[in-house]
Amino acid sequence: MSRRFLFVVAACVVMLYFSIILFMLNPLHSARLGYPPIPYRNVPIVDWCKPLQRRSPPGDVVGLASFPGSGNTWLRYLLQQATGILTGSVYLDPGLRMHGFPAENVTDGSVLVVKTHETLHTYRNSIFKSTIILIRNPRDAILAEYNRRHMGHIGTAPKSAFKKKIRRKEGDGIEKNKSKTHKETEWERFVASQMTAWESWHKAWLAVFRGPIHIVFYEALVKDTRRVLRDILNFINYNVTESALTCAITHREGIYRRRKKLKDFDPFTDEMYVQLDIIKNRVLAVIAEYRNKHNDTGSRRRRRS
């Protein structure tokens, strides 16, 4: 083989190596629908209130279950800030592992809680002795998940992503009486499927899970972070000082909350808003029924397995 050929091969290997390194250092990594573009910017460093460590002695395995886009990563961050204890996940997200969550893919009692977006039919959920269910308004959860799929954990999808038309093939089952002037967008199809999934996901968890459940609303977590964190820690029987909570509140923003919003642009239609209100109210009714049945006020654990 010629020296030139060997040089080209070596150069390609080096480029591939550094591409992998850049990807692994990217906190915007997305694991579901491919990998979003890597932004060329400095990655913020997490300022932890105390060094992170495993739980000792290990406790029961506590789930942190949420529908995608509901703020699971941010709540994990707040819990780590308040306790100094690592949180785990049933997934392995390299970006999260490199930037604040080294216990990704750890699912035992050495971590404070274990993240999951799975339904109860997934075998992994049988490990949970109790579960925190984080619930977010379906509008915001669906939009956050769409942003994540396009731009990762803290990015925002561009307006063009909401207007991209779906290429249809002949015989794909589209109704013949559909208007030929309207071509469905990826966003419209995504919202339709996610609304159905959002409702069924929450109903399934509340109906099937047999261990203690603590329900947390994302909006309440944003509005009254200290109280909600305190209630969660009471639920999992983990004591922290007021100064520890204060430190967590002081550092509440972290790097895993989206700050950039689409200005002067609302991707939801009036019809979508009607359907979003319908599914939200149905799930709220199920929550009210669950709490009434189990005498649960939402402030501390009531149910025993």
Rank of each mutant, 00 (worst) to 15 (best):
V8W: 13
V9A: 07
A10N: 03
M24A: 12
H29G: 13
I38N: 07
K50W: 06
P58N: 06
L64A: 05
F67N: 01
G69F: 03
G69V: 02
S70Q: 02
G71N: 02
L79T: 05
L79S: 00
L86R: 12
G100Y: 00
N105Q: 11
L120M: 15
I132W: 01
I132L: 08
I133M: 04
I133N: 01
L143V: 01
Y146R: 01
S160R: 12
R167D: 11
R168V: 06
G171H: 04
D172T: 04
I174V: 14
E184P: 05
E184K: 08
A192W: 13
W201H: 08
H202I: 00
H202P: 03
W205P: 07
W205C: 08
W205Y: 15
R210W: 06
R210S: 14
I213K: 03
I213V: 12
Y218H: 06
L221Y: 01
V222C: 12
D224T: 10
R230W: 12
L233C: 05
F235M: 08
F235N: 06
V240W: 02
T241V: 06
K263D: 13
F265Y: 11
V274G: 07
R282T: 02
V286C: 12
I287G: 06
E289A: 14
K293L: 12
H294A: 07
H294F: 15
T297I: 11
G298Q: 04
G298P: 03
S299E: 10
R300T: 10
